[in-house]
């Protein structure tokens, strides 16, 4: 009993601490800026993403209809929220805290910026500062991601390349890459995020027991998140999972299935009952015929 009260006390204290504590983004995130200018298209796309992922707790901005949780999810149009820099909001969405989940694996960073674009539309005083992507030597468009299956070691090797004006196709080094296996309801991270080496390569360990489809195919998603390049994604299918056959739910005989999938016991019971009853009925009809035959040619009134 005392233990339970103690646990409760700790929970209360933690939540109080959390709500009391000011949430500050790290300095390098604080100054981060969107790689693109916010416009009507980005606001519209952001609104859609917000309504599917954020509204369930935060409610609609400006309507004060957030869910009653402790600590309360703030209204996104509030002064407190709008006081954050773009980079800080981006960080908080990506990392999360307490009841606020981390969205870094669910919503790609470009989409997070679109959400921020939508949220800023509730702030009249907001003036956007776009990330100054002067490029220098590092910023190269058209990054190519290639995935290789290293059969011996059971690993996935990734190589990043990008064309450069001076030197032709060059490896992209020191870029953070993540790999996910696609599944229903979100993506499953494969191994930890890795940075590419000087040759633009990184190696990911692939789990030996990951189920694939009937021939072991797994859909992989490699994502390079870098403000210099924007989001680069590649979608490939590789036969590297464990071949798994899952019978569809409607394959077996069941009460709720189609008539050709009637349970055997029911089919037998029904057929035997119907044939049994109608067998006797037909037999009785034959008996009526027998009665008629028996009496044919005789004077029917004679007996009476």
């Amino acid at each position: 009993m005392i233990k339970r009260y103690f646990t409760l006390l700790i929970i209360v204290l933690i939540s109080m601490r959390l709500s009391a504590q000011v949430w500050v983004a790290p300095a390098e995130n604080e100054t981060k800026k969107s790689p693109f200018a916010f416009d009507d298209a980005s606001r519209k796309a952001g609104a859609e993403i917000y309504m599917t992922n954020c509204k369930s707790c935060h409610g609609e901005p400006g309507k004060n209809n957030a869910v009653l949780l402790v600590p309360p999810p703030p209204d996104m149009s509030s002064v407190k929220v709008q006081a954050n820099s773009d980079g800080a909001i981006q960080y908080k969405i990506a990392v999360g805290r307490g009841l606020m989940p981390s969205f870094k694996n669910t919503i790609p960073s470009t989409d997070v910026w679109k959400v921020i674009s939508f949220l800023r539309s509730f702030n009249d005083k907001y003036v956007q500062e776009v990330s100054k992507n002067d490029g220098g030597g590092a910023s190269v468009p058209n990054v190519k991601i290639k995935l290789n299956w290293l059969k011996e070691s059971g690993q996935i090797q990734i190589s990043l390349t990008a064309p450069s004006k001076e030197k032709g196709i060059q490896p992209v080094s020191a870029a953070e890459v993540k790999i996910f296996a696609k599944r229903y309801f979100g993506n499953l991270p494969v191994d930890e995020p890795r940075n590419t080496d000087a040759l633009g390569k990184a190696v990911f360990n692939f789990p030996k027991d990951l189920p694939g489809d009937s021939i072991g195919s797994v859909q992989l998603l490699a994502v390079l998140s870098n403000d210099a390049f924007g989001d680069v994604k590649v979608d490939t299918t590789m036969s590297i999972g464990v071949p798994t056959y899952r019978a569809p739910l409607n394959e077996q005989r069941a009460m709720w299935n189609v008539v050709s999938k009637t349970p055997i016991w029911l089919l037998l019971a029904y057929t035997i009952a119907v044939l049994g009853a109608w067998g006797f009925i037909i037999y009785v009809f034959l008996q009526i015929r027998a009665i008629s035959k028996e009496g044919s040619g005789k004077d029917t009134e004679s007996a009476a």
Binding site: I288, I291, K293, E294, G295, K298, D299, E301, A303
Partner: peptide, 12 residues
């Protein structure tokens, strides 16, 4: 049905 009260008919 050609009924003429024979014992066989009654039996059937």
């Amino acid at each position: 049905v050609n009924w003429n009260h024979t014992p066989k008919q009654y039996k059937i």
